[in-house]
């Protein structure tokens, strides 16, 4: 049997290019280009590593405006088999609740799924809600903040990162797994696959296809109300400069003050 894997991805503004206007203290996005959320690249790589060992089909699902196409093509060029972009004017302004609902609805339209991967969080809003939300809407188990993910005979095994260590979890499919940022090295796109990806293209689904009503999604379906935004001034931290020779003393001092700890 071929394993059916879904990977949730998002196109985000390149965080390295977001600059803060020195006068207004607002984010200046005018210079910012869009990229694939980096933790989602790790999620796709986790899926591809399973596919390296077990026959599998990987479907990438995203919600976003049409320009997210570049991200979808990129995922196909890394090795995904199918790309679906849920795009509809009604989806604009969604918070994490209707986003989870929309993505879950798209996934439930697929014939079958065994494992869903998502990045631990997006770099532009950093909530980490959408992955777990999708698992809840679909009524399946979830393992969050994972690395070293493996699949064998209907079970997913993964390491969860906790405050004080790691936890190894084994769970039967279907399951949703959120993947830690930098937990693997995403493989590169190849020219061959990218040519094929451009020819194949992505599928675009609207909310009608998902049988969702406009009032359930987008800004209308979002319970969050933004009352006010404010920029917070960065607190000046104490700092000191040390020479190369003083580093061992510095490490000792930080250790004694319990700022750093030993990891086994």
């Amino acid at each position: 049997m071929v394993l059916e894997i879904v990977v949730m991805v998002k196109q985000v503004p390149d965080s390295q290019e977001v600059v803060i206007d020195p006068v207004t203290m607002n984010l200046n996005r005018s210079m910012t280009r869009n990229v694939t959320n980096r933790a989602d690249e790790n999620a796709l790589e986790a899926a591809l590593q399973i596919k390296d060992k077990t026959p599998a089909n990987i479907t990438v699902v995203s919600m976003g405006p049409p320009q997210a196409e570049s991200t979808m093509i990129e995922c196909l060029a890394r090795g995904a088999d199918r790309a679906i972009l849920v795009s509809d004017r009604a989806l604009g302004g969604a918070d994490t609740y209707p986003t989870g609902l929309t993505v879950a609805s798209a996934i439930s339209k697929l014939d079958h799924f065994d494992i869903i991967f998502a990045g631990e969080e997006s770099s532009d809003s950093s909530t980490g809600h959408v992955g777990p939300g999708v698992a809840e809407f679909l009524g399946i188990d979830q393992i969050t903040y994972c690395s070293k993910i493996q699949y064998e005979d209907g079970y997913v095994t993964a390491e969860r990162e906790l405050e004080d260590g790691t936890e190894v979890v084994k769970c039967p499919t279907p399951v949703l797994v959120t993947v830690l940022l930098n937990s693997n090295y995403p493989r590169r796109q190849t020219l061959r696959r990218k040519i094929d990806a451009v020819r194949k293209g992505m599928e675009v689904w609207n909310i009608e296809k998902l049988e969702l009503k406009p009032e359930w999604v987008g800004v209308r379906g979002s319970p969050t109300i933004v009352r006010r935004m404010q920029s917070i001034k960065e607190k000046q931290r104490e700092g000191k400069k040390v020479t190369l020779e003083q580093i061992p003393d510095l490490v000792k001092e930080l250790y004694e003050k319990k700022i750093i700890r030993e990891v086994h």
């Binding site: 390149d14 390295q16 290019e17 210079m31 280009r33 590169r188 796109q189």
Partner: peptide, 8 residues
């Protein structure tokens, strides 16, 4: 693969 310097 598009990595390295990314001029704006």
């Amino acid at each position: 693969g598009g990595q390295g310097i990314k001029y704006k």
